[in-house]
Design a protein around this nucleic acid. Structure first.
Lengths: 111, 111
DNA sequence: CCCGTCCTCAACCCAAGGGTTGACAACCGC
DNA sequence: GCGGTTGTCAACCCTTGGGTTGAGGACGGG
């Protein structure tokens, strides 16, 4: 599971991590702030943040100890690009099928 | 992990399953046809298809034994909706930050 | 300078996931 | 109706993943 897309999808497969992303969309935050609302330990949240970081969804620019976690929204586009590609392809198939059905309908009406 | 969004993200976290989706976007196919290109056993592919089905990404309308697997593209919108929501929110934050910086710039120029 | 706070690393536990083999049910062609 | 093809179920292996506790490292405010 070394490919970037798998990491991103896998990172967002967890509800806690999706919640982290949702909250980080509203602004940067430290690990402590992020961990506060949950009942899990700070260590667990730290792990989650690391997973998000490895997926490129999040960054911590500073080298300080109490550095804020920052959402990297660009990576989200990677997913949307993948998804949209196949959604559109499938949609096109439907349209083509509709066209075929329309032609068939026409042909039955004038033999 | 019972929530739909987690299931969808988790389903697409696997490269093989993403490939299945990609191929199904081009048209329906049976499990056998789907399994052919891979080196894993048919049972493994059958499992993958079941995961996609549980996530709602795929359906098998017929009750026949050799029923074709069909991509349900609508579910992909569920993900895009989630992603876009937070991507835009983050984007807005940037714009607001830019606005603030612009105002600060202006104020320094006319004291 | 030093104490408390904040965070991470390490080791471990248990559940879930992807893979395999083996058996078996259901269908199709004949 | 029978034999081969096609797909799924079941049991099992091993790895990954989320969680915990325990220890320890690095700052920051006094």
């Amino acid at each position: 599971m070394t490919d970037p897309l798998s990491r991103v999808f896998s990172a967002l497969a967890d509800p806690t991590r999706r919640d982290l992303v949702a909250r980080l969309a509203a602004g940067d935050a430290t690990v402590g702030q992020l961990a506060a609302p949950y009942r899990v330990t700070v260590q667990a949240v730290s792990k989650h943040v690391k997973v998000l970081e490895d997926a490129g969804l999040v960054s911590r620019s500073g080298d300080s100890h109490r550095r804020p976690v920052h959402l990297e929204a660009d990576v989200l586009d990677l997913m949307t690009a993948w998804i949209e590609r196949y959604r559109r392809q499938a949609e096109q198939r439907y349209r083509r099928l509709d066209a075929v059905l329309a032609v068939m309908e026409e042909e039955t009406q004038e033999p």
